[in-house]
Measured scan of single mutants.
Amino acid sequence: KHICAICGDRSSGKHYGVYSCEGCKGFFKRTVRKDLTYTCRDNKDCLIDKRQRNRCQYCRYQKCLAMGMKREAVQEE
């Protein structure tokens, strides 16, 4: 069993190059498709875990990228 590289929830498989849960997969897809931009209200180092993953979209998206999620993979779907 794999866990989500972004928030630690149960992974549903590899999405956009990274083991991730449905929540983070959908979040990344929406962000890329709609070309959304986020801002962090703190120091750009918010904790992203299962409980708090919805608290800061900026940091969640940065963690998706840092863990290796690929924007191109969304476009190719």
Rank of each mutant, 00 (worst) to 15 (best):
I48D: 08
R30W: 04
T31P: 01
H2L: 08
L36M: 07
E22G: 13
I48Y: 02
K50H: 09
R53D: 11
T39P: 13
R71N: 12
V74H: 09
G17S: 09
K1V: 03
G8Q: 14
K29W: 11
Q57P: 13
R51H: 07
L65H: 06
G17N: 15
D9T: 05
R71W: 07
D45Y: 07
Y16A: 12
E72T: 09
R41T: 13
C7F: 00
K14G: 11
Y58R: 08
A73M: 14
C4F: 00
A73L: 09
R10D: 07
C59Q: 01
C7S: 00
I48S: 08
C40N: 01
V74Y: 08
K70Q: 10
C40G: 01
G26C: 06
H15S: 03
G17R: 05
L65E: 09
Y16V: 11
Y58A: 10
T39S: 13
Y19V: 06
I3L: 12
C21T: 00
E22L: 03
A5D: 12
A73K: 06
G68P: 01
V74P: 11
Y19M: 10
K70G: 14
R10E: 07
M67N: 10
I6N: 02
R41A: 14
A66C: 05
L36V: 12
D49A: 12
C21W: 00
Y61H: 06
G68C: 04
D49K: 13
L36K: 09
G23V: 04
R10G: 06
I48M: 13
K29H: 06
S11C: 10
S12D: 11
L65W: 05
E77S: 10
R30E: 08
T37L: 07
Y16K: 05
C64R: 01
V18F: 04
K44L: 06
Y16Q: 15
L47I: 11
R41L: 05
R33T: 10
I6R: 01
D9V: 02
A5H: 14
R30H: 03
Y58G: 09
S12F: 05
A66I: 08
D49S: 08
A66R: 09
M69Y: 11
N43A: 12
H2I: 15
C40W: 01
Y38T: 14
L47A: 11
D49H: 10
S11I: 05
A73Q: 08
Y19C: 04
H2C: 03
H2Q: 09
Y38G: 08
D45C: 07
C24Q: 00
N43P: 06
S12H: 04
R51Q: 10
G23W: 10
C4L: 00
G8N: 09
R51D: 06
E77H: 13
V32M: 09
G8I: 03
R41Q: 14
S20R: 01
V32R: 03
D45V: 09
C7D: 02
G17M: 13
K44V: 08
R53K: 12
D9W: 04
D9H: 03
G13D: 12
C40Q: 01
V32P: 02
R53H: 12
T37K: 15
H2N: 11
V74R: 09
K70R: 10
Y38F: 15
M67T: 11
T37R: 08
C46I: 02
S20K: 02
V32H: 06
G17Y: 05
G23R: 08
Y58P: 02
R30F: 02
K50L: 07
R10P: 12
C59R: 00
E77W: 14
C59G: 01
K50G: 12
D49T: 06
K29S: 07
R71S: 11
K14H: 02
L65P: 01
L65T: 15
C24V: 00
C46M: 03
D9L: 01
R51Y: 07
K29F: 08
H2W: 05
C7M: 01
C56F: 03
T39R: 12
I6Q: 00
L36N: 09
I48Q: 15
I3W: 02
T37Y: 06
C7L: 00
G68T: 02
R33G: 10
I48L: 12
Q57A: 11
A73W: 10
Y19F: 05
K29L: 12
T39F: 10
Y19P: 11
G13T: 11
K14C: 09
S20W: 14
T31M: 11
S20E: 03
G13K: 15
K70D: 12
G13Q: 10
T31K: 03
D9N: 07
T39M: 14
K14E: 08
R71C: 11
G8A: 09
C59E: 01
C4I: 01
V18H: 02
M69L: 08
L65N: 15
R33P: 04
G13C: 01
N43R: 11
G26L: 04
C24R: 00
S12R: 15
C56R: 10
G23K: 04
A5C: 12
S11K: 05
G68M: 03
C21D: 02
C59N: 00
A66H: 14
I6V: 09
F28L: 02
K50D: 13
D49M: 03
L65F: 08
K1W: 02
A5Y: 15
L65G: 04
E72N: 07
E72C: 07
L36A: 13
Q57C: 08
K50Q: 14
E76Q: 11
C21A: 00
Y16P: 06
K44S: 10
K70T: 09
Y58E: 14
C40I: 01
Y16H: 09
C59H: 06
C24L: 00
D9I: 02
C24F: 00
C7R: 00
D9C: 00
R53I: 12
C46T: 03
K14F: 12
R10T: 09
V32T: 13
C59K: 00
A66K: 14
V18G: 12
C7H: 00
K1N: 09
K1L: 02
G13P: 04
E77Q: 10
T39C: 14
L47M: 07
I3S: 04
G23L: 02
N43W: 10
G13L: 06
Q57F: 05
N43F: 06
L36H: 12
C7V: 00
N43G: 14
K50Y: 05
M69H: 01
E76F: 11
K1Q: 03
D45S: 09
A73T: 12
C7Y: 00
N43T: 14
M67I: 12
F28N: 01
Y19W: 06
D45L: 07
K70P: 13
I3G: 03
Y16R: 07
E72P: 04
M67C: 09
H2F: 07
A5P: 06
E72D: 14
K44W: 10
G68W: 02
H15A: 04
E22I: 10
K14S: 08
K14D: 12
K14Q: 11
D35Y: 04
Y38S: 09
D49Q: 13
C4Q: 01
D45T: 07
K44A: 11
I3C: 13
S20A: 14
I6M: 08
